[in-house]
Computed example of a mutant assay.
Amino acid sequence: MISLFMTFSDPAGGRRVRSEALNAVAVLIGAVPQMTEGLLFTPLEQSADHPYKADGPGPAFALQLRFPDLLACEAALNRGGALASLATGGGLSSLTGLDVTHQVMLTRSFPVDVAEHHPGTATPCSYLVHYPGPAEDMNAWNLHYLEHHPSIMRTFPNVRQIEIYTRIDWVDQLPSQRIEHMQRNKLVFDSPAALSHALTSDVITRMRADFVRFPPFAGGNKHFPMLTRVVRPAPSQDMPS
């Protein structure tokens, strides 16, 4: 599976995306051809305790769109499409003027003990992490990370999803800035409180112990807890032509 990430950042800080703008984006991306799932990420309404709060509040808005394969994703990245419009704000004042970046990556999913959210979960919380890179040896980096880190992540209390994203080559015609982080990953929990409980548990000690064994890399890493809204494809996409 392929994921497109788009990130909207406010250099001055403080920008909040209004709910009506999020609703408009949900409609827009729901109609993107061959998109199988969309995820809208917004900052927490209240700060949550986690080990990397010094990384800052994160972007004003971000999204992840899933596609079944690379060609389906690339077809949605033409200069006249909805995503090209969104990359310049989509006519929405909440998004206009933000710094926008995008990246297409391979999605690697890993098992968790219980994937279903707790009954009553309204707004899950995703922990978005990225490593800008580079690593001295990308193969060595990927081998170590993929073989060791997900099994530790799985032991976080009530983690509902583990995904790691690795680089690929892709083509697009979007007006936003292309970036090529060497890796991203995402952990999903039922709520900000559940995320905070997990990331302040003793599991983080094992994560840090593995971190110091990573093959050499530059660029550090960033961690952002984000509220998560799921968008399904518009019903018309599922109808035969």
Rank of each mutant, 00 (worst) to 15 (best):
L39K: 14
K222P: 00
G220P: 02
A140H: 03
Q34C: 15
T205V: 14
L83N: 05
I2F: 11
L92S: 07
T7K: 08
L195H: 01
R108A: 09
P119Y: 11
V159R: 02
L71V: 14
G38P: 11
T7C: 09
G38F: 10
P59G: 06
L65Q: 10
F211Y: 14
L98P: 05
L70P: 09
A72D: 12
T205Q: 11
A60M: 03
H149A: 07
G219N: 00
D202C: 02
D137P: 01
L95I: 11
K222H: 15
N78P: 00
S93P: 01
S196P: 02
W170S: 09
M1I: 12
M239W: 14
Q46V: 15
H144C: 10
P57D: 12
A87G: 07
A209G: 03
L146H: 09
R66I: 08
M138R: 13
T42V: 15
L174I: 01
S19Y: 07
I152L: 12
S47L: 12
T101H: 03
S151R: 15
A75H: 06
E37V: 15
G120T: 12
Q64R: 15
M182Y: 00
H144S: 04
N78I: 09
R15V: 08
L4F: 07
G220N: 06
T166M: 03
I162A: 03
A24C: 05
H223T: 00
L146E: 13
L39H: 12
F156D: 03
H117I: 07
D49T: 14
K186C: 12
A140L: 10
H118D: 13
I179Q: 00
T107V: 15
G81Y: 07
L195F: 06
F211P: 00
D202M: 04
R154K: 14
V32H: 07
T36L: 13
D190Q: 01
L83K: 04
V171P: 00
H181A: 10
Q103G: 04
T155C: 03
R178F: 00
A135W: 03
L77H: 04
H148E: 12
T155I: 08
Q103W: 02
I162M: 08
R15Q: 09
V114Y: 10
L40T: 08
V230P: 06
D190E: 06
H149W: 04
H223M: 06
L22Y: 01
S9P: 01
F110N: 06
K222R: 15
P150R: 04
R154N: 10
T7G: 09
P124E: 05
E147R: 13
V27W: 03
S151F: 13
K53T: 14
G133K: 02
E45S: 14
M226Y: 09
F8K: 09
R206S: 13
V104W: 02
R208V: 00
K186H: 08
L106S: 13
P111Q: 06
Q173Y: 00
A193W: 02
Y52D: 14
N142D: 14
P68R: 11
G13N: 05
G89N: 11
G56P: 01
P132Q: 06
V203Q: 09
V112Q: 08
A82M: 12
D10I: 01
P43H: 10
V231P: 09
S236K: 15
I162H: 03
S191R: 02
A87L: 00
D99L: 11
R184V: 07
D49E: 14
I2A: 06
L199P: 01
A135D: 03
C73S: 12
L28V: 13
